[in-house]
C-alpha cells in the first residue's frame, strides 16, 4: 500500500464517520411532538391565584380525594384538606378535619341544638408572594415560578424539613418514600395545559376558584374586585395568594 492510497483510505474513513455522526444527530434529535416550552416572558403574563368561598363549601371532601388521586399524595399527608368549624351558644369552638376530610365528615358534632354557627374551610398551599418556605430553603430547591406558583425542585431538595417548619399554614410535609419535601403545586402539570387544578374541577359547589390575577377579565379578579375577602395569618408578612371569602376570625 503506497502513501496516496493510505491517504485516500483515511479520507474515506473520515467522511464516513462524519456522515454517520451527522445522520445520527439528525435522527436522534427528532421527536414525535414539539414540546411547547413557554418562555419566562410568556409565563410572566400570568399570576396564578386561588380563591376559596367558604360560604359555598359543603365539606364533601371531593377536592381532597381528587388531589390525592391526581398527585399521588401519600397516605396521612395532605396537599389540601378541609376543616370544619362549629361554634356553640357559649362561644366554644370545635375544629376538626378527620383524615383531612378525605372521607368527608362524620355526623359527630356538638349537640345540634347548641351549635349557633358552623362552616367549612378548605386549606391548601397559599403560594405566598413572600413565602417563608422559599426564603428558608438552604439549597434553593423551593422557588417561585415566573407565573407565580411556589414549586419544589425534587431533584435538588435534600429533605431537611426546614421549609416544613417555616410554613405557617402546615401545608408542607416530607414525602418519606422519596425523602423530599412536597406540597400543593396548583396542579402545575394541568395548568400548563390550560386545565384547572384537580380540586377546582372536583368541587361540586364552585367553592374553589382559580385564575390569572393579572387578567382583569378573569373570574378570580372580578370576584376579588367585587367581594370582601381575607387571607390567613396576614400579620406574618407572607402575603398569601389564596384568598378567602367569608373568613371567620376563628380560622387560623
Amino acid at each position: 500500500m503506497d502513501k496516496i492510497e493510505r491517504r485516500q483510505f483515511l479520507k474515506l474513513g473520515l467522511y464516513t464517520t462524519a456522515g454517520v455522526m451527522m445522520g445520527s444527530l439528525f435522527a436522534f434529535s427528532r421527536t414525535d411532538k414539539e414540546i411547547d416550552y413557554k418562555s419566562p416572558e410568556d409565563l410572566s403574563k400570568f399570576d396564578w391565584g386561588f380563591l376559596v368561598d367558604t360560604t359555598r363549601c359543603i365539606g364533601c371532601g371531593a377536592c381532597v380525594r381528587a388531589c390525592k388521586v391526581e398527585n399521588n399524595v401519600p397516605d396521612s399527608y395532605f396537599r389540601t384538606w378541609v376543616e370544619r368549624y362549629e361554634i356553640d351558644k357559649n362561644g366554644r369552638v370545635r375544629v376538626d378535619s378527620p383524615n383531612g376530610a378525605l372521607e368527608s365528615f362524620k355526623d359527630d358534632n356538638f349537640n345540634e341544638a347548641e351549635i349557633v354557627k358552623a362552616f367549612f374551610v378548605p386549606k391548601l398551599c397559599n403560594h405566598c408572594y413572600d413565602s417563608a418556605c422559599t426564603q428558608v430553603c438552604p439549597v434553593g430547591a423551593t422557588y417561585e415560578s415566573p407565573d407565580g406558583v411556589v414549586l419544589i425542585d425534587k431533584e435538588r431538595c435534600v429533605g431537611c424539613g426546614y421549609c416544613v417548619q417555616a410554613c405557617p399554614y402546615g401545608c408542607r410535609y416530607i414525602d418519606h418514600e422519596k425523602g423530599v419535601a412536597d406540597k400543593c403545586t396548583l396542579c402545575y402539570h394541568r395548568i400548563q395545559k390550560g386545565e384547572a387544578p384537580a380540586c377546582v374541577n372536583a368541587c361540586p359547589r364552585a367553592a374553589r376558584i382559580f385564575g390569572n390575577l393579572k387578567d382583569p377579565e378573569s373570574k378570580i379578579r372580578k370576584i376579588l374586585n367585587l367581594r370582601r375577602y381575607g387571607t390567613l395569618k396576614p400579620d406574618l408578612g407572607t402575603n398569601p395568594k389564596c384568598y378567602y371569602i367569608g373568613l371567620d376570625m376563628e380560622v387560623k
Binding site: Q135, V136, G140, V158, G179, V180
Partner: peptide, 23 residues
Amino acid sequence: NHLGRPDRAFNIMITPNFNSAMS
C-alpha cells in the same frame, strides 16, 4: 441520619440559597 436525601447533603455548599438561614 435525619436528611431525607443524605446523598445530596453537599447541595448546601454547591447550590446554596443565601436567603436561607441554614445555607
